[in-house]
């Protein structure tokens, strides 16, 4: 993966430089393809890169960015084998392999946590359908 990363820098250094300034999350491109898509599918409840939006009462459980990988793995294995009670998570953990759970643990532990405010809504335009 590192190799690809390096090659990409060479072929598109200018693009890369421009975008790198706008995004500090470049490391995610070096993660294996399987995990980057799987981890991103957690975003619906846990936020992009595990950075759940702030202000919800679930925030403590929802933030995965920067989470201790052992804690993550222990909880997910518990949901998987039924020893830990879950509201929703057992329905996910049971469908994942142990290798996937470990990969996710590593991935999220490597993400920096950040304050993410809920998105501000706006008034619907009169010309909208």
């Amino acid at each position: 993966m590192f190799k690809i990363h390096f090659k990409l820098i060479l072929i598109s250094s200018v693009y890369w430089a421009a975008y790198a300034q706008a995004s500090e999350d470049i490391s995610i491109s070096a993660v294996n393809l399987h995990t980057r898509v799987l981890a991103a599918s957690c975003a619906a409840c846990h936020g992009t890169l595990g950075r759940a939006v702030t202000g919800s009462s679930l925030e403590r459980n929802a933030v995965l960015a920067g989470r201790d990988p052992e804690d993550f793995t222990k909880k997910m294995f518990g949901f998987k084998d039924g020893s830990r009670r879950g509201t929703v998570m057992h329905h996910h953990a049971k469908g994942l392999t142990e290798a996937e759970i470990k990969q996710l643990a590593l991935f999220f532990s490597q993400q920096k946590s950040a304050e993410i405010d809920p998105l501000n809504p706006q008034t619907l335009n009169t010309h909208h359908e």
């Binding site: 975003a43 619906a44 409840c45 846990h46 936020g47 992009t48 759940a52 939006v53 202000g55 919800s56 009462s57 679930l58 929802a62 509201t87 929703v88 993410i116 809920p118 998105l119």
Partner: peptide, 20 residues
Amino acid sequence: QEEGVYAKAWAQNIWADVLT
């Protein structure tokens, strides 16, 4: 009600993921 709160958090997180 607990899942009512989860559902709200789902919406806030998916909106933030898609739109930011």
